[in-house]
Amino acid sequence: MGSYTFHLVCVLHSVAAMTCGLLLMFYTNEVFEFTHGREIAVKIKGSTPHDQLLIRTSDSFSGLLLFALGFLLFMVASVKDRNFQGFFARGCVFLHVFLIFRKFGMLQVWRIYFDRKLEDLGGNWLRLVVGDIVLALSWVFFLLYTWRERYD
């Protein structure tokens, strides 16, 4: 049963990553308007054509990376080796916990140096941290489920 749970968690994470990647590559402006509002989305796009091109290129590459990671997760979902599944799930938990701590660390640097200039994005960190916690918990629940299954 652990194999089915691993497959399900991987596919759910894969669909989320691939969807976010595609949205970031092709519908960046619409996503920013939906998540931040029209006024802030206009500010995020950049003020000069050169800035706009750099920001759009960066967003497209970020979306491509997310899509590739989602595709990789989709391929990993078919692995049947339980030792690999546990190793992979522990690695994913570590990765998400690392991202949570990195965001808290970067938040302090961000507030000290840049908060006055980009005050529109100041409340965004909480949503990002909650998302990382939810994603990490899905892997933790998988590990607990397989541990319970193994030792019952």
Results as ranks from 00 to 15, higher is better:
residue 1 M to R: 06
residue 1 M to P: 01
residue 2 G to A: 05
residue 4 Y to T: 10
residue 5 T to W: 10
residue 7 H to E: 05
residue 9 V to L: 13
residue 12 L to H: 14
residue 12 L to Q: 08
residue 13 H to G: 04
residue 14 S to C: 09
residue 15 V to T: 02
residue 18 M to H: 03
residue 20 C to S: 15
residue 22 L to H: 11
residue 22 L to D: 12
residue 23 L to K: 04
residue 26 F to R: 05
residue 27 Y to E: 08
residue 30 E to P: 01
residue 31 V to M: 13
residue 32 F to S: 11
residue 32 F to W: 07
residue 33 E to D: 14
residue 34 F to S: 03
residue 35 T to C: 01
residue 39 E to F: 09
residue 39 E to C: 03
residue 40 I to W: 01
residue 46 G to H: 13
residue 46 G to L: 03
residue 47 S to Q: 15
residue 49 P to C: 14
residue 50 H to W: 08
residue 51 D to R: 08
residue 51 D to M: 13
residue 52 Q to P: 03
residue 57 T to Q: 06
residue 58 S to A: 09
residue 58 S to Q: 09
residue 60 S to A: 12
residue 61 F to D: 10
residue 61 F to I: 10
residue 66 L to Q: 05
residue 67 F to D: 02
residue 69 L to A: 06
residue 70 G to P: 05
residue 71 F to V: 09
residue 75 M to G: 03
residue 77 A to T: 04
residue 77 A to H: 11
residue 78 S to T: 05
residue 78 S to W: 07
residue 78 S to K: 04
residue 79 V to G: 01
residue 80 K to C: 01
residue 81 D to P: 11
residue 83 N to Q: 01
residue 85 Q to Y: 02
residue 87 F to Y: 07
residue 89 A to W: 02
residue 89 A to F: 09
residue 90 R to M: 10
residue 91 G to M: 08
residue 93 V to N: 15
residue 93 V to L: 08
residue 95 L to A: 15
residue 96 H to R: 15
residue 97 V to C: 04
residue 99 L to W: 15
residue 99 L to M: 11
residue 100 I to P: 00
residue 100 I to G: 01
residue 102 R to A: 12
residue 102 R to V: 08
residue 108 Q to F: 12
residue 109 V to D: 07
residue 114 F to H: 14
residue 121 L to R: 03
residue 122 G to Q: 08
residue 122 G to K: 15
residue 124 N to I: 05
residue 124 N to Q: 06
residue 127 R to M: 08
residue 127 R to L: 13
residue 130 V to S: 00
residue 131 G to M: 00
residue 132 D to G: 00
residue 134 V to E: 04
residue 140 V to A: 06
residue 140 V to Q: 02
residue 142 F to R: 01
residue 144 L to M: 04
residue 145 Y to C: 01
residue 146 T to V: 04
residue 151 Y to E: 15
